[in-house]
Computed example of a mutant assay.
Amino acid sequence: MPRFAANLTMLFTEVPFLDRFERAARAGFTAVEFLFPYAWPATDIRQRLAAHKLQLVLHNLPAGHWDAGERGIACHPDRVEEFRAGVAQAIKYASALGVPQLNCLAGKVPAGVDAATAHRTLVENLRFAASELKAAGRRLLVEPINTFDIPGFCVNRTDQALALLDEVGADNAFVQYDVYHAQRTEGELAATLQQHLARIGHIQVADNPGRNEPGTGEINYDFLFAHIDRIGYRGWIGCEYKPAAGTEAGLGWRQRLAL
């Protein structure tokens, strides 16, 4: 049966971040994920995890100036040292919080940088990150993101991410497969998951259109969750969606889908 982790960046947003751990546990989650931990001391996050018996399954590497619209810097040739410092910071947090894998947002290709230079920078940065994470006993993830939501993002499709990882050549590097982004970009959800399951390290879900909870849009999550279970995925599924009418009010999808 699929195991679901509450994405605290998206869920329970009506309360301060550190209070979302208690809400997740009260809602029946045993695991959480979020974009970034870096605004809070690791000791504070660790205390909330322990107090509410939660496992932290994922967070991202630092991704530049998020509030200014940046969505990763791994493809930015003039910010390699910043990227490498971010890898070190992420590993410190992951070690303190017991996080087994970290996601790298590749970023939007900077203005004035040609595609070949951005790609070469991304490959080199991912090789560095994978090596550092492997030394720390952790996995690296790379996530394709649709260009409707983030125009200019440089990794958009599953096949592109797989080719990128082939070029990186690291045995601890995997795809983070976000069902919502994949539906908007390429479809073929069930076939893609089955064909590339061995190279998928983490799954995230939201429905389309609207990026709301499963069952509110066009994706047949009743079928898809059963399919994910049937093909043997044993990792966590991150609930990275925008609740249509409040998190708790929208959790009925778990009961409706007999999960």
Rank of each mutant, 00 (worst) to 15 (best):
T13I: 07
V15Q: 13
P16D: 00
L18V: 04
R20Y: 05
V32W: 03
E33H: 07
L35C: 12
D44M: 10
D44K: 12
Q47R: 14
L56Q: 11
L61A: 08
W66I: 14
R71S: 15
C75T: 00
F83D: 07
R84H: 14
V87E: 03
A88Y: 06
Q89I: 02
A90D: 00
K92L: 13
N103I: 11
V109Y: 03
V109F: 05
A111S: 14
A116L: 14
A116N: 08
K134A: 15
A135C: 12
A136N: 02
G137R: 07
E143M: 07
P151E: 10
C154L: 14
T158D: 10
A161K: 09
D166H: 10
A173F: 01
V175A: 06
Q176D: 03
Q183S: 15
R184C: 14
E186H: 15
G187A: 10
L189D: 00
A191V: 11
R199E: 10
R199G: 12
G201V: 01
H202G: 00
N212E: 09
P214D: 01
I219G: 00
F225P: 05
A226I: 05
D229S: 13
R230V: 01
R230G: 02
G232D: 08
W236E: 02
K242M: 11
A249R: 10
G250I: 04
